[in-house]
Write a protein that binds this DNA or RNA. Structure first.
Lengths: 235, 235
DNA sequence: CCTTATTATTTGTACTACATAATTACCTTA
DNA sequence: TAAGGTAATTATGTAGTACAAATAATAAGG
C-alpha cells in the first residue's frame, strides 16, 4: 500500500518528510515550525530546497507562512484531504478505523454513480480497457497481480464516465482499495472473491444498463465494507 | 465568481498567471516552456520565485520538469481536477457548456449523498450553523447576500457529514454554484426561488430523515440543472 | 554501423544579500 | 497615565550567483 515512490529530488524528500509529520499529527495544527534557516540546517538542505517544499505543502493546505510570524501547521479543516499525497500520508502508518469507515463511505457514493455514468456514456474503446482489466483480474495468479488489475478496473470505470472530475477521485478509490487490501482477511485461496461482482458491473456497462451497473457496484462496495468489519472485529 | 484573491506574493502571482495559461489551453499539453532563466526574465521575476511557483504547479499535476529536457505541460489526464485553483482557472473565462454539465453531474452525486449523511450524523451545533445559513438566505436583500449565504449553507451541510473527505469536495460544489449563479437567469425578483428546497433539506436534516433529505437535495440540484439548460437554449 | 566517451544544456541545490511586512517595544504627547 | 504613533526587530519574500547532477545530443573509436 505505501508507495515506494522513488523520491529522487531533494525538495520532494522534504515534502514527504514534513507532509508525513504533519498529517500523522507529530506536528500538531497550530504548532509553529522553526524558522526556515534553522529548519533547513536541521534537515541538512538549503533554504532554497526547503522553501520549494514548503510552497507545495502550503498549496496542499497543510501549512501557512506569514512574514515575521513564521510558518504554522494549519487546522485540518484547511487540508486538501483529497490530495493523493495527503491520503497516502494518512495511510503511511496503519489508518484509524474511523478513517477507513470514511473511505468506504466515499466509495459508496462515488463508485455506484460512476458505474451508472459509465454504463450511459462509455465508448467502445473504454469498454475494451475495462474488459482487459477484468480479464487480468480473472487471470491473476497471485495477490499482487490481482491488486494491480483491480485498481486498473476501477480506474478504467472512472475514465469511462467521461467526466474528468470523476477521474480525479481515483486517488480516493485507490486509497480505499489499498486499505481494503491490507485490512480484509484475504488469503491465497480467496482473493478472487469479488470477481463475480466485477463481472456484473462490466456486463451492465457493456449492455448500457445504468441502474444494473449501479446496483452491482453498490453490492460490491457493501460487500467489501462487511469484509473489513469482520476483520476489525477479529482484531 | 472569479475569486479576487488578493494575490500578494510574487510567486503566487506567477502560479496564477501560468496556471491560467495552462488550464485555458493557451499553453497546450505537451508544449515545452522556455527554460527557467528565460521565463523568469520574461515574467520579470527571479528564478527563485519562478521555481517556487513551478513546484506548486507541478504538485497540481499541470507541469513536469526534467533535467536537460526542460519543463512541459502535462496531459489533462494528470491534472488535479478537483484542486480549487484548477477549478477556478477553468472558470476564469466563461466555462464551456459541457464543463458546466460535468459540474452539475458532480453535484448530483455529491450533494444528495451528503444531505443523507448529514441527516444521519449531524451534531446539534452543526445543525445550528446550517440553520443560521438558511436564515441568512431567507433574510438576504440582494443577490450578493444570497450567494454568500447559499455557499455557507452548502458548506455547512458538507461539514455536517462529519467526513472531512466530503468537506474537501466543497471546491467542486462551490465552483458548480458559481457557474450556476452566472448562467441561471436570475433577476432581482426571483433569486430566492430555491429557498423552499433549502428549507426541505434543512428540516429533513433537523429531523434526522436521511432519505427525505436526499430526495429534497436531488430535487434542488435537478431544478438548478434545468434552470441552466433553459438559459443555455436562450443563448 | 554500432558502441562508447564527450560535451552541452537544462534543471537541481546551495549560499549570500537585501526587501518587505508585521510584531514588539519604546517613546512622545495630550 | 493612557493613547498613539514610530522605530527596532525578526521572520518570510525576492534577487542573483555559482556550481552540481542528469541526460540528450554529438563526436570518437571499434
Amino acid at each position: 500500500m505505501v508507495k515506494p515512490m522513488a523520491v529522487r529530488s531533494l525538495h520532494n524528500q522534504v515534502i514527504h518528510e514534513l507532509g508525513r509529520l504533519i498529517v500523522s499529527g507529530e506536528l500538531a495544527p497550530g504548532e509553529g515550525l522553526p524558522r526556515e534557516e534553522l529548519l533547513a540546517e536541521r534537515m541538512n538542505v538549503s533554504r532554497t530546497a526547503l522553501r520549494e517544499a514548503m510552497k507545495v505543502l502550503s498549496a496542499k493546505g497543510l501549512i501557512e507562512s506569514r512574514q515575521k510570524t513564521g510558518t504554522r501547521v494549519r487546522d485540518t479543516i484547511h487540508w486538501n484531504q483529497l490530495d493523493a499525497d495527503v491520503l497516502a500520508w494518512r495511510c503511511a502508518s496503519m489508518p484509524t478505523e474511523d478513517f477507513v469507515e470514511k473511505l468506504v463511505e466515499m466509495r459508496e457514493i462515488i463508485e455506484p454513480a460512476a458505474a451508472a455514468a459509465a454504463a450511459r456514456r462509455r465508448t467502445a474503446e473504454q469498454l475494451e480497457t475495462l474488459a482487459t482489466a477484468y480479464e487480468a483480474m480473472a487471470a491473476s495468479a497471485n495477490l499482487d497481480a490481482w491488486t494491480e488489475a483491480d485498481l486498473a478496473f476501477h480506474e478504467a470505470m472512472l475514465h469511462a464516465t467521461n467526466n474528468e472530475l470523476m477521474v480525479s477521485l481515483f486517488s480516493v478509490v485507490e486509497t480505499a482499495l489499498g486499505t481494503y487490501f491490507v485490512l480484509s482477511a484475504r488469503t491465497a485461496s480467496n482473493f478472487k472473491y469479488s470477481l463475480p461482482h466485477h463481472k456484473k458491473v462490466l456486463d451492465a456497462i457493456r449492455r448500457r444498463q445504468p441502474e444494473v451497473a449501479r446496483q452491482a457496484m453498490v453490492k460490491m462496495v457493501s460487500d467489501s465494507r462487511s469484509n473489513i468489519r469482520r476483520h476489525s472485529k477479529k482484531a
